[in-house]
């Protein structure tokens, strides 16, 4: 993207954001809204600055859960998609899996995991993130390993290529952009899953705990400060995914799409 276009793209949302915050501030001041109903942006900002260290440590706790789950889920997803391919059960398994993934709110499993481990354990949340990332990676990578161009397979056969060579020189390179697509989807999903998992109880150290608990204690501005922390963490993970996407685009002219579930 050239600088000129970057400005064209960045200016409208920036203007909108500033106007939004100013309007918010004006409404809260003008109608004299009570802080327990809606705090003013200025009050939220003060609470954010005052509680910065707390917000940061909570963001790190949630971020660590998201990151560990993201990495573990990715590794597991890749491994299982290879196993399924090895045993030729990709076709039968993956499509129903993709549908189930969209239809079933597997996030509720976090309550089950919570019950299995000590209440001070981070494992249930990480398991939850891992599980959700696992499915996203599995569905996409499996697709990349499977949807190989028929001409490529015939060429490899005409070269008398070994099954291993077909894997390393055709299927895996074919699946790589699908993996990046999966990560692009999975990175923001991992953060959201980590937050939501923290709502379900367990250790009280993440953003997903502090946001509702501060609201419950009528410390609304502080709760909103944690919301800012959540936004920043989400943005960080989103940036990771944007970087991943640009890598795909650099490697290929037009990146083939993966499943955007």
């Amino acid at each position: 993207m050239n600088p000129r276009r970057a400005i064209d793209v960045a200016v409208p949302p920036a203007v909108f954001g500033v106007l939004f915050v100013l309007t918010w501030e004006a409404i809260v001041q003008g109608f004299d809204l009570k802080p327990y109903f809606l705090p003013a942006p200025s009050a939220i900002w003060n609470a954010f600055v005052d509680n910065f260290d707390l917000v940061r440590s909570a963001a790190f706790a949630s971020g660590a859960n998201a990151l560990v789950g993201l990495l573990a889920g990715t590794l597991l997803g890749i491994s299982v998609s290879f196993l399924l391919m090895r045993f030729n059960i990709l076709n039968e398994l993956v499509s129903p899996l993709a549908i189930a993934l969209n239809a079933v709110p597997i996030i509720v499993l976090v309550a089950v995991f919570q019950n299995m481990f000590a209440s001070t354990s981070e494992i249930p949340r990480r398991l939850m993130v891992m599980l959700i990332v696992f499915f996203i990676v599995l569905v996409n990578v499996a697709k990349g390993l499977r949807q190989v161009h028929a001409t490529h397979l015939e060429l490899m056969r005409s070269y008398a290529a070994s099954p291993l060579a077909v894997l390393t020189k055709t299927r895996i390179p074919n699946a790589l952009p699908y993996l990046f697509t999966a990560l692009k989807i999975a990175a923001p999903t991992a953060v959201i899953t980590a937050f939501v998992s923290e709502y379900f109880g367990g250790r009280q150290n993440g953003l997903g705990y502090f946001i509702p608990s501060n609201f419950a204690n009528s410390k609304n501005a502080v709760a909103w400060a944690y919301v800012i922390g959540a936004c920043l963490l989400g943005l960080t993970f989103y940036l990771i995914s944007v970087v991943l996407e640009s890598i795909i685009k650099q490697r290929r002219g037009a990146a083939p799409g993966g499943e955007t579930t």
Binding site: H149, T151, H152, E154, L155, S158, Y159, K169, R251
Partner: peptide, 26 residues
């Protein structure tokens, strides 16, 4: 033998020279 199809069937992730090298590599 060498084979060519209606679709060129080049491997997108390989440069032109590496595409030509593939059968030799194998």
């Amino acid at each position: 033998y060498g084979m060519a199809f209606q679709q060129a069937g080049l491997f997108d992730w390989r440069s032109v020279v590496k595409n030509i090298e593939l059968p030799l590599e194998l």
